[in-house]
Amino acid sequence: MATTVAATAAALVTASLAAPAANAAGQHWGTIYVVDRGDKVGAAYGDFANNGGVYATVGANWVDMRNDGNPIYVEVWFSFWEEDTDGKWRWVNDKAVQSTRSSRFKPVGAPLSTRLHSAATQARAEIKVCEDINLTTDICSAHAILSFSY
C-alpha cells in the first residue's frame, strides 16, 4: 500500500512538472461609463489577459444605456514594454488602435487582440467606452489601464 501511494504521488509530481503552466486569469476592468451632460449613456466592463502566450486580449461587454440611436463602442490602445537600441526601456505603441466600432449594429461583446511582441516583457491596454455621435466629436469615458508581464 505504501509503495502504491508513493508511486502515485511520484507520478503526479512528474506529470505536474511536465505539464505547461496555465495562463493567469484575466485582470478585470470596469465598469467604466461614458457620461453626456451628467447622464450615464453607456457602460463597459471586461478583462485583459495573456491569451495562450501569443496574444494580448481584451474581452469587452458594453451597453447603450440611453438607446437613442447613438451606438456605444469600446476602443483599446495596446502598448508593450521593450528595450530600444540605446538600451533604454520604454512603452512602444502597437501598430493600430482596435475598436468595436465597425458598424451601427454591434454585438453585445467582442474580444480585441493583438500579437504579443517577442522583444517585450509587458503588455498594456488602455481601454475606454465611447458614444458614437454623428457630425461631432464622440464622447468617451476615462481610460481603464491594465498590464501584465510575460
Rank of each mutant, 00 (worst) to 15 (best):
M1C: 10
A2M: 05
V5S: 07
A6Q: 12
A6N: 10
T8V: 01
A9M: 10
L12F: 01
L12H: 02
V13S: 09
S16K: 03
L17Y: 09
A22L: 06
N23M: 11
G26T: 06
Q27T: 14
W29Y: 15
I32D: 11
V35G: 13
D36H: 02
R37V: 11
R37C: 06
G38C: 08
V41Y: 04
G42P: 03
A43T: 12
Y45E: 11
D47I: 02
F48H: 07
A49W: 09
A49R: 09
N50Q: 02
G52R: 14
G52S: 03
G53N: 06
G53C: 11
G53A: 02
V54H: 02
Y55V: 03
G59W: 09
N61C: 13
W62Y: 15
V63Q: 09
V63L: 01
D64Q: 05
M65V: 04
D68M: 09
I72A: 04
I72W: 13
I72G: 00
V76P: 08
V76T: 06
W77Q: 09
W77Y: 04
F78D: 07
F80Y: 15
F80K: 08
E82F: 04
D84V: 09
T85Q: 05
T85P: 02
V92R: 04
V92T: 13
N93W: 07
D94Q: 02
K95W: 01
V97P: 00
Q98K: 14
S99Q: 11
T100P: 05
T100M: 04
S103E: 02
K106F: 03
P107D: 04
V108P: 02
G109R: 09
P111G: 12
L112Y: 03
L112M: 14
L116E: 04
A120M: 06
T121G: 05
A123I: 01
R124W: 01
R124G: 06
R124P: 08
I127V: 08
K128L: 07
V129Q: 02
C130T: 01
E131M: 03
D132F: 02
D132M: 01
N134F: 09
L135T: 03
L135A: 13
L135F: 15
T137E: 01
T137P: 00
I139Y: 01
I139N: 08
A142E: 05
I145S: 15
L146F: 00
Y150G: 01
